[in-house]
Each structure stands twice: as structure tokens, then as C-alpha cells.
């Protein structure tokens, strides 16, 4: 032992540090740098595949399509086009309305399921949670297609009702309309709503519920005064997780929406596809994102006011 101490090299002075050692020392000294270091693979991935494409999209939206070429001069033409032709803002408004309905339907359907698992299931909770994700084991397209089979002209509902003699002709209003889009999307996104609501319900201290009962609340009063307010973070997360991706969805409206069920996502998809107008598609995307952001800010703001009043 003593031998090694004696033969140890001289203390390294900062001037003699190599690049690696300098980097190490900087890492040791700065907590922020350590944080970025830890994030670096993800950060790099996000910059390459999220920030960069978004920037490109923004740049594209200020260019214009000139038949086969792209005119690279800066212009607001795409944006003025959006506001000049009412069909686009109508489609965006309808998309937000459909997504809003999907969000409300999904949260209302998901809440009792999450509540059941959080409060009534005591054993094998994990099994229940896995069962909830079972619909996700098949492809999204297949699930949408399944709804087409259920709601279609010769579909399960129509043939069932006809078999029972309740109707003589197939009902045509149940497929190819916004209603079909809402049902299909609500089913497709249910798990995304159940899980965050479940987590927030699971976190509620059970003695709070007992305290509310002890202080005279009936089960219903207790739900509205304690359980629901304390699970709001989960409800908000669920609402966002459903609302944000469904506004831009184009597969479901295309397959079950018919002409009335067309959403902004279908237009954007066609701009980047058959219509071959990438700059206008880009500006439609930017406008949609901005609209969604505004919606969410308003939503959070209303929620904050409600909570302060409670």
C-alpha cells in the first residue's frame, strides 16, 4: 500500500489536462451540463426529427407551388388563401368540433372504467390494465375497418335490427357521417384516456374519501367534492392526449366519415399527396397547430378559473 502512495504521479495541474479531462471537469462542476449530457441522445433525436421538420414545415408554408416547381420567394399567399376561402376554416372548425366531441365522449366513457380499476379492483390490477390495451394489439386500420363492418349498410347493426324485425330497410345514417367518426375515434383512443385517469385516481389518498364520508358526504357528494377535483389532472391529460391527435386524423374520416365527415387532416393529406401542393399543405398544418394550441390554452385557463372558484 505505502509503495503505491510513494510512486503515485504528481498532482495533475489544470494546464496539463487533456480534452476529455477538461470535459469531465466541466461536467462535474455544472449541474446544467450534466442534465444536457444525460438528455443528449433524446435531445439530438428531437432536434433532428421534430424541431428540424417543424422548421422546414414553417419555411415551406411561406413558399408557393408553381405547377411542378416551388416558388421560393417569401409570401403570405397560402395564409390569405386559407382565410379567403371559407371552406378551409369551415373544415378546421368542424375538425375541432368532431375532436371535441370525441374527447368528451372518450373521457366520459373512460372515467368509469378507470374508476372501477382504481377503486373496485383489488387483485390483479395489472391484468386489468393490460386487458384495456388489448384493442391496441390490432392495427389502427383494422379497428377502423371493424367499425365499418359494424356500422355499414349490410353491417352488424343493420342486419341485426332487420333480423329482429325492428326495421325493414337498412339504416343509412349510421355510417359515412361525423357521428361514425366520433364513435370510431372514441373507441380507438379509449386506452389513452383510461390510463392517465386511472393513475390520478389511484394516487388519491383513501383516507380523504373516508374523511369526506365522516364529515357527512353521501357517495355522490363525495365524488363531486373530492374524487373528481382530485382526479382533474388525469382528466386534463386524457383530454389532451385524445384531442390533439384526433384533430389531425385523416384515416378514420376517410374510411367511415363519408363526404360530411371530411376533416382538415384529409385536406392536408391530399395537399401532400394527390393535389401536390406542399406549401399550402404546410400552411394548413401550421394553422391547425396554432388553432389547437389556442384551444388548449383556453381549456387550461377555464380549468384554472373553475378550480379557483371551487
Amino acid at each position: 500500500m505505502t509503495d503505491r502512495v510513494v510512486s503515485a504521479p504528481d498532482v495533475v495541474t489544470p494546464a496539463r489536462l487533456g480534452v476529455v479531462a477538461k470535459y469531465r471537469r466541466a461536467i462535474m462542476r455544472s449541474e446544467a451540463l450534466r442534465g444536457y449530457n444525460l438528455l443528449s441522445p433524446t435531445l439530438l433525436f428531437m432536434i433532428l426529427f421534430l424541431a428540424l421538420p417543424l422548421g422546414l414545415l414553417l419555411v415551406f408554408s411561406f413558399w408557393t407551388q408553381n405547377y411542378l416547381d416551388i416558388d421560393y420567394s417569401f409570401t403570405l399567399a397560402n395564409y390569405t388563401k386559407f382565410f379567403d376561402r371559407p371552406v378551409f376554416s369551415y373544415l378546421l372548425g368542424k375538425s375541432i368540433l368532431i375532436s371535441g366531441s370525441v374527447t368528451i365522449a372518450t373521457v366520459i366513457l373512460a372515467y368509469p372504467m378507470a374508476y372501477y380499476i382504481a377503486f373496485r379492483v383489488h387483485k390483479h390490477k395489472l391484468v386489468w390494465l393490460i386487458l384495456i390495451t388489448v384493442p391496441f394489439w390490432t392495427s389502427y386500420l383494422l379497428r377502423v375497418f371493424a367499425w365499418k363492418v359494424i356500422l355499414g349498410y349490410n353491417g352488424v347493426i343493420n342486419s341485426g335490427l332487420m333480423e329482429l324485425g325492428l326495421i325493414s330497410e337498412p339504416l343509412e345514417f349510421i355510417l359515412y357521417n361525423p357521428f361514425a367518426v366520433v364513435i370510431t375515434l372514441a373507441h380507438a383512443w379509449a386506452a389513452f384516456a383510461i390510463l392517465p385517469i386511472y393513475v390520478s385516481l389511484e394516487k388519491i389518498d383513501r383516507s380523504l374519501l373516508e374523511a369526506a364520508t365522516d364529515l357527512g358526504d353521501t357517495p355522490i357528494m363525495r365524488f363531486f367534492r373530492i374524487t373528481l377535483p382530485l382526479s382533474m389532472p388525469g382528466v386534463i391529460a386524457a383530454a389532451m392526449l385524445v384531442f390533439i391527435p384526433t384533430v389531425g386524423d385523416f384515416v378514420t374520416p376517410k374510411m367511415v366519415g363519408g363526404t360530411d365527415g371530411v376533416m382538415i387532416g384529409n385536406v392536408i393529406q391530399s395537399m401532400f399527396g394527390t393535389s401536390h401542393n406542399w406549401p399550402f399543405g404546410a400552411s394548413l398544418s401550421i394553422i391547425s397547430m396554432t388553432a389547437i394550441t389556442i384551444m388548449i390554452v383556453v381549456f387550461l385557463w377555464i380549468n384554472r378559473i373553475m378550480r379557483r372558484r371551487a
Binding site: D205, L208, D214, L215, G216, D217, P229, R307, A310
Partner: peptide, 21 residues
Amino acid sequence: VAPNHRPVNMVFQSYAIFPHL
């Protein structure tokens, strides 16, 4: 008699103060 109708009240071990109020 259900707990919400009993003439008793309780102080809980963890106090159970409602965090949102």
C-alpha cells in the same frame, strides 16, 4: 347507520386534509 349519518367525527392519523381546499 352509515358513517355519514353517525353522530361521530374522526381525526385521521394522516390528518386527511383535503389538498385542493
